[in-house]
């Protein structure tokens, strides 16, 4: 019985255990900068798992998801930040936000919920489209939100940064939220809605003929992924202690999509592995760009190498392993006698 449960939970546990080891090592032995890198990577895991819930299961690429991070980040900032300055710098806020400060936990939860409500409202319209038209319109949504938040001076301080958010995000907290995001993603994936959505990904026409509503299944996933993106936005805001609207724009969109594609966008393992691999590579390169000392000599690679190497990694994956490093499979239960790969796919155990 215990073994069966363990087996069923393996696609999540098998990811969480190695991550826990990494966090433990970073927490015990790592320098501050290593600890920060690990925390950043964990927040990225929440982000990419959020993307995966929609993109991986529906097969529709969305470029607009980081907007929901922005919505949650601003929402939590309004509730928790700078009580003295708020009435002046963000005078357009409604009174319950302008003159009150709320505890971080309810603020974070309500901010994530707001992001999922926003995703639902956007989804009502966007999910009417399919294929490339849907993807393009999500990009439009990204731009619309960026423009609104950049110019809504009295509420968002325009393009200026909001500083002074409480920074309570530790590696362990980020780990816990990443675990929660993975559990949400996995439960959705093995639910009947998740199954129905994956069927629409495989063949929309046949899914309709099987009584599945493509629209509602996609909308459900879009809303749920909005919630997880919101969780990532809250973590991001309270990790850095500062937010500005341009952090939630094209470069974050494309780095997170790269992570998803490199790992393999059809599986949760792929989403997580992609973040780990890309974060590791970029972190090493970033350190080398700023110079490392090798036997007394300061060596630095040219600035910008990071982007070039990432582009090369992405291209190599697209050329040689189009389904990503995991090929869209979940990590298999390691103690079974030889089992067909498909048996463990998407938790059909």
């Amino acid at each position: 019985m215990v073994l069966r449960l363990l087996k069923q939970a393996w696609p999540v546990l098998g990811l969480l255990l190695p991550l826990a080891v990494i966090v433990l090592l970073a927490d015990q032995f790592g320098s501050i900068s290593v600890e920060r890198s690990v925390t950043e990577a964990l927040i990225k895991i929440v982000t990419v798992v959020g993307l995966y819930i929609f993109i991986g299961n529906s097969g529709v690429v969305s470029f607009g998801h980081v907007s929901f991070m922005a919505i949650a980040a601003y929402a939590t900032a309004w509730q928790t930040c700078c009580s003295a300055l708020k009435p002046i710098t963000m005078s357009g806020l409604p009174d319950f936000l302008r003159s009150h400060t709320y505890p971080v936990l309810p603020a974070g939860i309500s901010a994530a919920i707001l992001a999922s409500i926003a995703a639902f409202v956007f989804g009502l319209i966007l999910m009417r489209l399919s294929g490339i038209a849907a993807s393009i319109s999500t990009l439009a949504a990204l731009f619309i939100l960026n423009v609104v938040y950049s110019n809504w001076d009295k509420v968002t301080m325009g393009t200026a940064s909001i500083v002074g958010l409480p920074t309570y995000v530790t590696p362990w907290l980020a780990f816990a939220v990443a675990g929660l995001a993975m559990v949400i993603a996995y439960l959705f994936q093995i639910s009947s809605w998740g199954l129905a959505l994956r069927a629409t990904r495989e063949d929309e026409v046949a899914a309709r003929a099987s009584g599945i509503s493509v629209y509602w299944m996609r909308l459900a996933a879009f809303t749920l992924s909005g919630l997880v993106m919101g969780m990532a936005g809250v973590l991001h805001a309270h990790f850095l202690g500062t937010i500005s609207v341009d952090t939630f724009f094209l470069s974050l969109t494309f780095i997170t999509l790269t992570m998803l594609v490199v790992g393999g966008m059809r599986s949760l393992s792929g989403a997580v592995l992609g973040v780990v691999v890309i974060s590791f590579v970029t972190d090493i390169l970033r350190r080398m760009e700023s110079g490392v000392s090798v036997s007394g000599q300061e060596i630095a690679i040219p600035a910008g190498s990071q982007e070039v190497v990432l582009a090369v990694v992405m291209l190599l994956v697209l050329i040689f392993r189009r389904d990503g490093l995991t090929k869209g499979r979940e990590f298999a239960w390691p103690f079974a006698r030889r089992q067909s790969i498909s048996e463990t796919k998407h938790g059909d155990a």
Partner: peptide
């Protein structure tokens, strides 16, 4: 068929 789902999942859907 839903090619990347298992045979059983195809019918389940």
């Amino acid at each position: 068929l839903f090619r990347d789902l298992t045979v059983r999942q195809n019918l389940e859907v």
